[in-house]
Design a binder for these strands. Structure first.
Lengths: 218, 218
DNA sequence: CGCGTTTTGTTCTCACGTTCACAAACTCCT
DNA sequence: AGGAGTTTGTGAACGTGAGAACAAAACGCG
């Protein structure tokens, strides 16, 4: 389930606050979900709570981390070291959960600095050589939209089965390869849509009030 | 619907390729969705296709853009000009669709350069003053997790009703405020989960084959 | 002008996810 | 030890969204 990471983060917050036991109600409130849904999600990975008491924060944290696979190391390669690639390479939250930036690749490595965040930038053409040196589990595409599909194809051909795509394109990949997409522009458009609907509703309300006023005056 | 932006992008691609008419089947293939679902989505905003022919690319593009609200200007403020804030301010895809970075805010503006991408960085304490100078429709939070809720509260208090949150926290906001979340770490964890399941399935297959072999030999 | 072909718009069915509600189980207090 | 109060885990209803199938409509051709 896609909610497990959220639960995990909330549990980590609780643990840092010194709380060692919490109820499904409390945890659900922290993640803004229904408590029944949360309990069902947790029950899916086993009965790790005690009735009448709640969940042991640290124990549940470990169980969720194990379910997600965070007990192992996930080496990540970032392709495309532009503005976004830089920011991603420097992103501290990366390493905190078993994810490790193991390689930086760019079509034109001479264009950017030789190393970013202490990691050398290699040429994307050397992909196979890099993979031979260090295993890579997840490829992050931070290239312009035009290059994304080509990069994805080559990553898949090199044996990578998990891709996180920041380029504003829908990638076509064979079955058995997971792709997650992060798209700034889509999120903004969704916000704009709701914002516009709110504005439209307000106008309608205003018009209705005006019409009511006219009716009264008529 | 959250798929409209995807359709819009695919249509733009088609238009750039010089295609002026397309069927629901073609468009659906470009976005990796079922054609019936696509037709249903489009019919929700009116009957803009012609049976036996398909959809006029430019016309449909305009209709979707109008539905989303992209025919107007959406001024955006970015709060938190760290690594990510920099990258966002410089992100070119921002302006392409009616979104315009109208203000950059940071708790400590003296820490970063005076201006990023040609836009001056103001102090977040001057939020009200900035809003008085220039209208802001959408607030983008690119601060560390700890500061995010406080920033959100102040944005909401200042009258902003749409927030795009890049900080790894779930924000609590009053009803009537839209929040979209972009969370790198969650996406990676979802990928890791699937990757682990794939690895686990492979092991199980291997074990089953081994067991079958043992059975045969027994 | 009418028929066949193509493609939309829509209806119906189904499956999934969410929510409610309750029984089982555990703790605390007397 | 027993009962009251909590809280989990889960079975059943509910609503929503997805997919298949079909009717209506537009175009082209004879």
């Amino acid at each position: 389930m896609a909610r497990l990471p959220e639960y995990l983060r909330a549990l980590t917050s609780l643990a840092e606050a010194g709380i060692s036991v919490c109820s499904s109600e409390e945890l659900a409130a922290a993640v803004n979900v229904n408590s029944a849904k949360l309990r069902k999600d947790l029950s899916y990975l086993g009965s790790y709570g005690t009735r009448g008491v709640g969940y042991d924060v640290d124990y549940l944290r470990y169980q969720i981390a194990r379910e997600i696979g965070l007990t192992q190391d996930w080496p990540v390669a970032i392709v495309g070291i532009g503005n976004l690639g830089h920011a991603l390479a420097n992103y501290s939250g990366f390493g905190s959960r078993g994810f490790r930036v193991a390689a930086l690749l760019d079509a034109a490595p001479e264009r950017c600095e030789e190393s970013v965040a202490g990691i050398p930038v290699r040429s994307f053409d050397d992909l196979d050589a890099v993979l031979a040196e260090t295993p890579i589990a997840i490829g992050v595409i931070a290239t312009p939209a035009g290059a994304a599909q080509g990069v994805a194809d080559r990553l898949v051909a090199a044996g990578i089965t998990s891709i996180l795509n920041f380029a504003p394109t829908t990638l076509a990949v064979p079955a058995g390869v997971s792709v997650r997409k992060v798209d700034l522009s889509v999120e903004l458009q969704i916000l704009a849509y709701h914002e516009q609907r709110r504005a439209g509703a307000e106008e309608l309300r205003g018009a209705a009030i005006a019409a009511a006023g006219e009716e009264q005056s008529a």
